[in-house]
């Protein structure tokens, strides 16, 4: 690669206001959120944190919008070379890798709890004497009865895998295909196809999110399965919740790509934004499959 002697231009943007606004935005967002959470936990009725958070979110959102717009503009102005695009490709791949590691922390936690902690609490292994602290605890997974039911009430039942979650699995897998169809259409310069398949993908994403929201509602109201239900609820909601957040972002990104396609952006050899979104979407899909296996199937 490095020996390829084609000389290309490498665009170095000049002074930019974007990063400093993005920094302020992200700072206000987390500062406000922190304030808000502290007030919430302290039992306050309302909190200025909410407003700081909202303001920060607006600044950050606005800046990112401007940022991406200028990137798109620069691209249209033909400032980017193939080499630039390779930079973007690498950057997006490593970003996705960092996301993988973020999820690994939570999956790792789940495995550790299931393989080690549950038996320990039940009196096995080298931390087995721990059961003297929890004489009434009966081990099980999903952990419906916790060692300390007063603080962590546990759930009435576990989330099954073969109802709604199966549907969601099918939806996400399908959407991975549809986004690929969209890509194929783009490669053939078939704009109609691109737009249609993208729209289908976005729709599938939205449906997934609706079903997920319904599932959460059901869990909270009917099953006693909450964040506070003990480690089963904890891992269930944290893993599926972070995944859901990523689906939300992914769907939003796809939606932007849809709008851009309608506006006539992207060419078969110039569609990095679209491709990056598609990779992200595949990544979200793969995480779901891991979730489906480890949280739903093996978890119930």
């Amino acid at each position: 690669m490095a020996n390829d002697a084609t000389y290309e231009t490498y665009y170095v943007p000049h002074d930019s206001k974007l990063p400093i606004f993005a920094s302020m935005g992200i700072f206000l967002t987390v500062f406000g959120l922190g304030h808000w959470l502290n007030d919430m936990t302290a039992g306050a009725e309302s909190s200025v944190g909410t407003w700081i958070f909202a303001a920060g979110g607006l600044v950050l959102g606005g800046t990112l919008f401007a940022w991406f717009s200028s990137v798109i503009e620069e691209n249209h102005a033909k400032l980017y070379s193939q080499q630039m695009n390779r930079s973007f490709v690498w950057a997006m791949s490593w970003f996705i890798f960092s996301e993988v590691m973020f999820f690994s922390a939570f999956f790792g936690g789940l495995f550790y709890i299931r393989m080690f902690v549950v038996p320990w609490l039940a009196g096995e292994g080298n931390r087995g004497p721990s059961d003297m602290l929890w004489p009434d605890y009966v081990p099980s997974w999903p952990m419906l009865n916790t060692p300390d039911p007063e603080r962590f009430p546990g759930a009435h039942e576990a989330m099954g895998a073969w109802g709604l979650p199966l549907w969601n699995t099918l939806i996400l897998i399908t959407s991975s295909f549809t986004v690929t169809f969209a890509h194929k259409a783009l490669e053939k310069n078939n704009r109609q196809g691109l737009i249609m398949w993208l729209a289908v993908t976005v729709a599938l994403g939205v449906v997934f999110l609706f079903l997920q929201a319904y599932e959460y509602h059901h869990a909270y109201t009917e099953m006693g399965l909450t964040l506070n239900a003990g480690i089963y609820g904890t891992t269930f909601f944290m893993l599926t919740g972070f995944h859901g957040a990523h689906v939300t972002i992914g769907t939003f990104m796809l939606f932007i790509m849809l709008l851009r396609s309608i506006k006539g952006h992207f060419k078969h050899d110039d569609c990095f934004g679209f491709e990056a979104t598609a990779w992200y979407w595949h990544f979200v899909d793969v995480v779901w499959i891991a979730l489906f296996v480890f949280v739903y199937i093996l978890g119930s």
Binding site: W120, L121, N126, R127, P129, S130, M132, L133, W134, P147
Partner: peptide
């Protein structure tokens, strides 16, 4: 030469 962490909720020997 004993140093054992005392961890809430668990018992170590």
């Amino acid at each position: 030469a004993i140093k054992r962490d005392a961890i809430p909720g668990f018992v170590h020997e």
